[in-house]
Amino acid sequence: MGYLRNRLIQAIITIYSIVTLGFAAIQLMPGGPAAAIRSQINSNPAAFGLPPDPTFEQINQVLQERMLVPPDQPLWEAYLTYMMGAFQGNLGESIIVQPGTSNVQLILEAAPWSIFLSSVALVYGLVVGIVLGSLMAYYEGSRFDVGMTITVILNSAVPFYIAAIVLLYFGAYQLGWFPTGGRFNTSTNPGFNWPFIQGIFYHAALPVASLVITGFGGQALSMRANSIRILGSDYIRVAELRGLSSYKISTRYLARNAILPMYTGIIIGLGGMLGGTVILEEIFAYPGMGMLMFDATVMRDFPLLTANLIIVTILFVIGTLIADFTYALIDPRAEQSSMG
């Protein structure tokens, strides 16, 4: 279990570092954290629940709530306060995007939408990639294989946001087949009913499509390479000699082993997609985590931005941990090698 223990320690180090980085970013924000918020409060006291002419103490009170850290505290004390707060799941409050709302609450409301987009795109991309990759391996060297390889390379050379803009322009604006933005049909009742769920998928279609179109290439190529390697191995030949049906060989002997090396990449890919939603959600006006991050960056709401970075990183680290821990379950060799 040494390997898994090391992974756990690594995860803790990563999360600790990212929270520290978040603290540093807030401290480094232009003009200093306190000054930035002070000017915000002075320009619009009502947004912070203060009377028109707030006293200095009132401003300081608000500052402490927003920043999680009392103003004018020495740096190390501020660091300790921030770390203690983060450890208890408190990452401060938004200062500009939605003044006074807890960052964690804002992000957790938006996160499911982004996770939904990313995981649907991941599943579709995987299915397309695996099917296409095994077909390419089966017809290795044929016109189909060469043609598809070039297509797949071209596909992965296109950044996903380019595909997104093209799809939005033609699919939504010019042809009007899909909505141009939003995440569900506003005329339906949110809840567990068919029109609402249908609207969700309808609105997710274009964002998901742009991720799938540009993303399946890598999966297909690695599936192709794995399959070709395994097709030449002895146990496939033995299985053929034993007279097993080709269906059994392709599903039991080939597919399982070819998909295995892709497993870790799948979960890591999910993390990458979550980070990439910033551009995607901005293009499709899809209010999820990415949109929140974008707003926070443009309005220079550093506490919200760093809280976003911290939570995305934690999600990513948890995903990697799940991949590491479950890998031993699906591939018993991994556990043996880590124990031995």
């Binding site: 995860a11 180090i13 990563t14 970013a25 480094l28 910033v278 960056t297 970075l309 995305v312 990183t313």
Partner: peptide, 19 residues
């Protein structure tokens, strides 16, 4: 290296670009 690798790229770039 592993720590650096586990930070999602685009959000990190957003913070650095803003700072």
């Amino acid at each position: 290296t592993d720590t650096m690798m586990s930070i999602p790229g685009l959000p990190l770039l957003l913070i650095l670009a803003a700072l």
